[in-house]
């Protein structure tokens, strides 16, 4: 059996074999930037207040999670750390940021130990419930925490969106990576902005 790959939509083969094309296109490409605003006002792992402007001049990789996460968070942050190591001197142009949604457990002290385990340049952020709600809304991120004391399950239950955000040097949205994105893919995209 022969299998071939087609790429552009305009190719005649594709027109004939697969698809009768677009009837109506009204969308504009601007809404992506509107979805992710990227504003925050939080506390870093040194206990200092920071905003998106605290990192002006650097590209940012921003990830939401919690330090007790068993798999998705450390896997993603491991890939971010791989990117930073692979960048060499160019790593100075990038600020990796981890925002914990588990504010009761993830104190600045715990965050400091956690992010240092991945990369020395990584910064951990937390905040009050109102601050975390605000940053989640600004990034279009979902999260929720159900305490063991409330659920009776014996374990805290935490969930959150697992996107990794690439933001520009002023903190504006550039792109996202999904859970499972490899360091090579992230690095290649970053380098487009060096």
């Amino acid at each position: 059996m022969t299998v071939r790959n087609e790429t552009p939509v305009s190719r005649p083969a594709l027109m004939h074999f697969c698809l009768a094309l677009c009837i109506l296109v009204l969308c504009s490409p601007g809404y992506a930037e509107e979805v992710v605003k990227g504003n925050f006002d939080l506390i870093d792992h040194h206990g200092q207040s920071v905003t998106e402007h605290s990192f002006d001049g650097k590209l940012r990789l921003v990830y939401f999670g919690f330090t007790r996460c068993p798999d998705v968070c450390p896997t993603t942050l491991f890939e971010v750390a791989r990117v930073m190591r692979s960048l060499g001197d160019d790593a100075a142009k990038v600020q990796p940021i981890f925002i914990s949604v588990d504010r009761e457990n993830d104190t600045p002290e715990i965050l400091a130990g956690y992010v240092a385990a991945f990369h020395p340049a990584m910064i951990g952020l937390t905040g009050s419930e109102q601050q975390l709600d605000a940053v989640a809304e600004s990034f279009n991120v979902t999260y929720g925490v159900e305490r063991a004391s409330d659920s009776g399950s014996g374990l805290d239950s935490v969930y959150h969106s697992a996107y990794l955000f690439l933001m520009d040097r002023q903190g504006a949205f550039i792109d996202i990576f999904g859970h499972g994105a490899k360091a090579e893919v992230i690095e290649a995209r970053l380098r487009e902005y060096f």
């Binding site: 022969t2 087609e6 697969c18 094309l21």
Partner: peptide, 12 residues
Amino acid sequence: RHRALTSSIQGL
């Protein structure tokens, strides 16, 4: 993102 058809794989 752009709500657009981009490509296809044929011949399966």
